[in-house]
């Protein structure tokens, strides 16, 4: 699933490690979400959206493969 996580993270000057730490997940999980290899759980998706002050729909494009 395509997401805006990488763009928002980089815009905020955050490393994958720092974002992972803020959300309680590993750097590899952030990387996997950014590269579309891993679809986060609803819980993590909501936490990601909240972290960037966006909605889940703004963060993730569920229609794009």
């Amino acid at each position: 699933m395509r997401s805006k996580v990488r763009a928002l993270r980089q815009a905020g000057g955050l490393s994958q490690e720092a974002l992972g730490k803020a959300l309680g997940v590993s750097r590899q999980t952030i990387n996997a979400i950014e590269t579309g290899r891993y679809d986060p759980s609803l819980r993590l998706a909501v936490h990601l959206a909240r972290h960037f002050g966006r909605t889940v729909e703004e963060m993730f494009d569920v229609d794009a493969e």
Binding site: V25, S26, Q28, P40, S41
Partner: peptide, 14 residues
């Protein structure tokens, strides 16, 4: 991640 999974020491949902 592979080290953690092989060691059964999970850090997160992935």
């Amino acid at each position: 991640d592979i080290t953690r999974v092989n060691a059964i020491e999970y850090r997160d949902e992935r």
